[in-house]
Nucleic acid binder design. Structure first.
Length: 225
DNA sequence: GCCCAGGAGCCCG
DNA sequence: CGGGCTCATGGG
């Protein structure tokens, strides 16, 4: 069922080509971040987009680029108040400024080269130890920056698949993630594309007020009628 | 004006 | 452990 829904979404929306922002080619899956700077951009972006529209987060990422702040040392040097000003468009800018500096500190202590060698479980725990990185942000970083196979769960994932009837809305993050891990092959590319498609589908049809009538997967869905 | 967006932390019972 | 609150901008 999960695989069928994936196929349907992919056929309809096409590959989403998520991350990073400043890539040259667009839509097809570009293979993900190639340079360390691109990885950094994904990591910072994962924080900036927390509970925020991608449009607003993207503006902040562009601003970070413009100010040469996609850089661990410069991120550590800049004063939090000044940083907050730069990322204003992403909302929660005071909190996020601290969060960005927190990740930068982690990356200073544990460079990407080192993190890449860790097994996923340890990597995840390390990321979760940072203030401002919760489960979804940690997994987004693991999947989209380090390109290791973890399934990212967000409010959209819960919304769509609880409506479909495959999961209970009240199950917690790790529980929902285990469900997807148990049903799908642990394939980085699949997880990458699936999560992006889920986001796209939630925006187009599976909104808070769902548009079931024209939904492209309503034949799979329990809530649709 | 209201609602929502690719969450996380903290507090409270 | 679950529920409610705070953080904040910009677009519909």
């Amino acid at each position: 069922m999960l695989k069928q829904i994936y196929g349907r979404l992919l056929a309809e929306y096409g590959a989403q080509g998520w991350w990073p922002v400043t890539k040259k080619e667009k839509p097809e899956y570009s293979g993900g971040p190639k340079t360390e700077k691109q990885q950094l951009e994904v990591i910072f972006g994962a924080i900036l987009t927390q509970n925020t529209s991608w449009k607003n987060a993207e503006k902040a990422i562009i601003e970070l680029n413009r100010r040469r702040l996609i850089d661990i040392d410069r991120m550590l040097e800049i004063h939090a108040d000044k940083l907050a000003l730069a990322i204003k468009s992403s909302g929660y800018f005071n909190q996020k400024a601290k969060k960005l500096k927190n990740v930068a500190a982690l990356l200073k202590k544990h460079p990407l080269k080192e993190l890449e060698k860790l097994e996923i479980k340890k990597l995840r725990l390390l990321l979760l130890s940072v203030e401002g990185i919760g489960p979804e942000t940690a997994d987004s970083i693991i999947l989209y920056a380090l390109r290791k196979p973890v399934f990212v769960v967000d409010t959209y994932t819960k919304r769509i698949f609880s409506r479909v009837g495959l999961i209970d809305k009240k199950r917690d993050y790790d529980d929902v993630q285990r469900f997807f891990h148990s049903k799908l092959k642990k394939d980085e590319k699949l997880f990458n594309e699936y999560h992006a498609l889920i986001v796209e589908h939630a925006k187009r049809y599976c909104r808070k007020e769902p548009l079931c009538k024209n939904c492209i997967v309503n034949s799979f869905c329990k809530a649709a009628k």
